[in-house]
Computed example of a mutant assay.
Amino acid sequence: MSDAKTAERAAEILKAHRESIDRLDAILVYTLGERFKHTQAVGKLKAEHDLPPSDPAREAIQIARLERLAVEADLDPEFAKNFLNFVIAEVIQHHKKHQS
């Protein structure tokens, strides 16, 4: 195969990967948006019933669950744990901001 054809084929493969990445980014953003709608509903329910904004026992269970899912998905479990901790912190911050 000539260098030009090899480069053209590589460009096609690169384009396909980038299109997949773009679709997955959109899925992630919309999925996070949907997740935050539910956490907002949970926060509102907790506020209405004077419940604490965080639930350390549930958070520990969720972290273990995501670490397990990460291993199954061939993803670094530490990344999954850090990601969930980031999401939890954002949710708590959002709830505190809207309670003030």
Rank of each mutant, 00 (worst) to 15 (best):
D50E: 14
A47C: 00
S54V: 07
N85P: 02
A64C: 01
R58E: 13
I92D: 02
Y30A: 06
D55Q: 12
P56H: 10
L24W: 05
Q62F: 04
V42I: 12
E90D: 08
V91N: 03
V71S: 02
F79I: 15
F79S: 14
E19T: 05
K44N: 05
D50S: 06
I92P: 01
K96D: 11
V42R: 00
L84E: 00
K46T: 10
K96N: 11
A57H: 07
F83G: 01
I88M: 04
A57D: 12
Y30F: 11
K44Q: 06
K44S: 00
A73S: 11
Q40R: 09
P77F: 06
Q62K: 02
A26N: 07
L45Q: 02
A57E: 15
R68M: 11
S20C: 07
A60L: 07
I92W: 01
A89E: 12
K81Q: 06
S54F: 05
I92N: 00
A7T: 09
K5Y: 10
G43I: 04
D74L: 11
G33F: 05
T31K: 05
D55Y: 13
A70W: 03
T31Y: 02
F79K: 14
Q62S: 00
V91I: 13
K37M: 15
Q62Y: 07
E72H: 12
R18T: 11
A47F: 15
K46I: 04
K37Q: 15
D74Y: 06
A4F: 11
E90K: 06
L66K: 00
A64S: 07
T31G: 08
E48W: 02
L66G: 02
E78Q: 15
A73V: 02
D76G: 10
S2V: 03
K44Y: 06
D76T: 04
K37Y: 14
E78M: 14
Q62V: 10
I13W: 03
R35S: 13
L32E: 01
Q93G: 12
Q62C: 04
F83R: 04
G33D: 13
L75S: 13
L66R: 03
M1S: 13
A57I: 07
D74G: 13
P52F: 08
E34H: 12
K46A: 04
A73K: 10
P77N: 04
K46R: 15
E72V: 03
N82D: 09
L28I: 12
Q93P: 05
L45G: 07
K37W: 08
R58F: 10
K5C: 02
V29S: 05
D76Q: 00
R23F: 06
A16T: 11
E48S: 14
E34W: 13
L32H: 00
I61S: 12
D22R: 05
K37V: 15
E48M: 10
T39M: 01
I21G: 00
A64Y: 01
E8P: 04
S54E: 15
T6A: 14
F36N: 15
L24F: 08
R23H: 03
P52D: 10
Y30K: 11
D50V: 00
H95F: 07
A4V: 14
D76R: 08
K46L: 09
G43T: 05
I13Y: 00
E67M: 14
K97L: 14
Q93F: 11
E48C: 06
E67K: 15
P53M: 04
A64P: 02
E19Y: 00
K97W: 11
A73G: 06
L51I: 11
D3H: 07
A10D: 08
